[in-house]
Design a binder for these strands. Structure first.
Lengths: 201, 201
DNA sequence: TTGATTTTCGCCTTTTGTTTGCGTAGCATG
DNA sequence: CATGCTACGCAAACAAAAGGCGAAAATCAA
């Protein structure tokens, strides 16, 4: 969508306002009157320009047929670093200036947030599949039932559901074919908590 | 992207601010006035440099045609209309100016795209759960295995996997507890194809 | 058909962007 | 130190787009 000039912006704003108020578009004359234009040709030219730039649509030769095309731009989103893969092994190497992903602000946590690509089907029953992108909020503690990025004995990193039970921590894969990992609180380190999932077909 | 000089940074910031405030770009003279430059050539040269370094785009010889190229922050994302719920019943009422959702551009299809909130667990085995947001590309045809929004007999709308088999269409829920729907091609109308999924915890 | 509305056609003025030529200052390099 | 490069600046001439006019033609809806 191309940028507007001052006049075009004024007219577009007026169209917006008028349609919002009346439920239908103004006639050429009403527009001209609003802006003190004595020639409808001028108005018509403006509308044509707005149409060329993709801000409105018009049915040919129909009264009050201008339609605002949804602008759908300028939305709030953040570009999060894509730090690597998660499943097993040691995926989170804080590679500087690696890839990055655009994520809607609503999907991000309050604190530092990053993204990881999921490898394998260990969380399949939690509706997280191979290839999905998980949005991870960087924190060191988790509540029961949350999906976490956990570091085991300073070595392996996995994506599991987190449960604190008496005397130990249970890391539960959401997959019947896999067994839970039960460890002492001292040997597990929470790296982050999954706050969002994104998938592309 | 190459680094900016001090002056270029100032001008880029001003462009940002002006466009954000007015909805259109400043003219060369307005820029020059803001910075106390008496020659438009100076302004012009700055804009050319900014363009060469990839921070702005300009249409040739067009008024107020400078456009900021999306930088790291506030990255490329679209605001798609959230048209309602999908599961069964008739969810897609093209409610104007209803809610909307911010979706990364990468998740959107090429054509018109909108979002729906998923109700129920009919697609649970496809890793789409109750409450998820599906990004739907508006089209009328689908390939085998794609997840589609289908309209049955002009009445019910459902979210199913699509299979064209000899003589009929099979709409397959991804849930063992549910039976597939088998209908003739004439009584099913594809409304759109799911191209993305988003979930927030 | 008639009245309301939109399109189109010249022609004009104003606004805006582009180009060329010239000049200064800072900085790095050979 | 001279040389060349880049950033930054001025002024004027020019070209094109944007904004505007009035009238006539074309279209649509009632």
């Amino acid at each position: 969508m191309q940028p507007l000039t001052k006049r075009q912006r004024e007219i577009l704003d007026y169209l917006n306002e008028f349609i919002d108020e009346h439920g239908y578009a103004p006639s050429l004359e009403e527009i001209g009157q609003r802006f003190g234009l004595s020639s409808l040709a001028t108005v018509h030219k403006h509308l044509t320009n707005l149409q060329d730039k993709g801000f409105i649509r018009r049915a040919w030769n129909r009264s009050r047929s201008v339609e605002l095309v949804p602008t759908r731009m300028g939305a709030r989103a953040l570009e999060l670093p894509l730090l690597g893969y998660v499943a097993a092994g040691v995926p989170i190497e804080a590679v500087v200036s690696a890839e990055s992903v655009v994520v809607p602000e609503e999907l991000c946590g309050a604190r530092d947030t990053y993204a990881l690509r999921v490898r394998g089907d260990s969380m399949i029953d939690e509706q997280i599949r191979d290839g999905d992108l998980v949005v991870v909020e960087d924190r060191r503690t988790a509540h029961n039932g949350e999906t976490v990025i956990a570091l085991l004995d300073g070595a392996d990193v996995t994506l599991k559901k987190f449960y604190r039970e008496d005397g130990h921590i249970r890391l539960q894969p959401a997959n019947d074919a896999m067994a839970p990992i039960i460890v002492s609180p001292s040997s597990v380190q929470i790296q982050g908590v999954v706050v969002g999932v994104m998938r592309r077909y």
